[in-house]
């Protein structure tokens, strides 16, 4: 009977992905993307990957949604005009207005066929046995945590996780390079709206507490540094939207310290452990649990600061287009 749910979810996810690509207006694309994120998160749950579902819910539905909405404002011609009836303004996607070129369609079709072939191959050749699950299960007591996914992410394959945090910082660096650093000092909007102020007062502690809970819960179940970092980053975004730009009131060096403390502590710990004769990121089993918790906390702080900074800079770049152009 659960085949009914699974097939409905599969059809929904693929349909939404297609509609997201083929929608005529940008605003439809953005909103269909939300629905797609939801369908994808539910699909991950049905596949048993609850860690991925949490990350999908936090990053795709939460953070990416906010970024897309911010971008939507920039692409809308209604921003500069006195435009009351917004929906009268159409935002046709490039190449969608006159005649559809044949090459993108061909590429899309070819990609779909290749994807189908790869999926078929994956379904046909399911690996024998349980793969690396058994090895992870055997090594789990030495990892310091009880949840296999956290053990793999923060202990067995810690180097990959370290690089992943670096990817977020690289994104922020690109935004700094594109001129975001100059407008960074501008304060945000003012919060004269009492409802907005109450919402911020109400949600900031909840976001912080739940982020901290996810961080700690990662030891024994789905959770961990990335969703926690997004939830804490959401506090920064919320405060920025409410006119309290938290990253602009602290000194620049403190911001850089917060941004780099996660990956910095992570790699320093790895090298320090090398001096005791073990390999990079090989935690001694006795202290592995507490070390992983500290590393995760630092990483979550850095991720939160980086996501906040990414949003803040993009948001303020879009508010001051003249200034960006003069910088170039």
């Amino acid at each position: 009977m659960s085949v009914l749910i699974d097939s409905l979810l599969a059809i929904l996810a693929i349909y939404l992905a297609l509609q997201c690509l083929l929608a005529q207006r940008l605003i439809q694309t953005v909103f269909i993307f939300f629905a797609f994120g939801l369908a994808l998160a539910l699909t991950w749950v049905r596949l048993g990957a609850i860690d991925v579902a949490i990350t999908e819910a936090a990053i795709a539905a939460g953070f990416m949604g906010v970024l897309f909405l911010d971008a939507l404002r920039d692409f809308s011609p209604a921003v500069s005009k006195k435009q009351q009836n917004l929906e009268a303004v159409r935002n046709p996607l490039p190449g969608n207005d006159t005649k559809r070129p044949i090459l993108p369609r061909l590429a899309l079709g070819l990609g779909l066929v290749l994807f189908l072939l790869i999926s078929l191959e994956a379904v046909w050749n399911t690996p024998e046995g349980k793969g690396l699950t058994v090895v992870t299960g055997v090594m789990l007591p030495d990892s310091g945590v009880e949840h296999p996914v956290t053990a793999v992410l923060l202990n067995f394959r810690a180097y990959d996780t370290w690089l992943e945090i670096g990817v977020i910082l690289m994104g922020l660096l690109a935004i700094f390079a594109a001129g975001g650093k100059e407008v960074y000092r501008k304060s945000g909007m003012t919060a004269e709206d009492p409802v907005l102020r109450q919402v911020i007062l109400f949600f900031t502690p909840i976001l912080f507490l739940f982020g901290a809970f996810l961080l700690y819960f990662g030891k024994s179940g789905p959770g961990g540094a990335f969703p926690a970092g997004v939830l804490w980053g959401a506090i920064g975004i919320l405060l920025h939207l409410g006119g309290r730009p938290v990253l602009t009131v602290i000194p620049r060096w403190l911001l850089y310290l917060i941004l780099t403390i996660g990956p910095g502590f992570f790699i320093l710990l790895g090298f320090l452990l090398m001096t005791t004769g073990s390999t990079l990121f090989e935690y001694p089993p006795a202290y592995a649990g507490i070390l992983i918790l500290i590393v995760e906390t630092m990483a979550a702080i850095s991720i939160a600061a980086a996501l906040t900074a990414i949003f803040t800079n993009l948001n303020q770049m879009s508010e001051e287009p003249d200034k960006i152009e003069s910088n170039n």
């Binding site: 939300f34 939460g62 907005l196």
Partner: peptide
């Protein structure tokens, strides 16, 4: 996670 982040979208 879905629930607490929904408010972000609204704002």
């Amino acid at each position: 996670t879905f629930n607490v982040l929904a408010i972000l979208l609204v704002i």
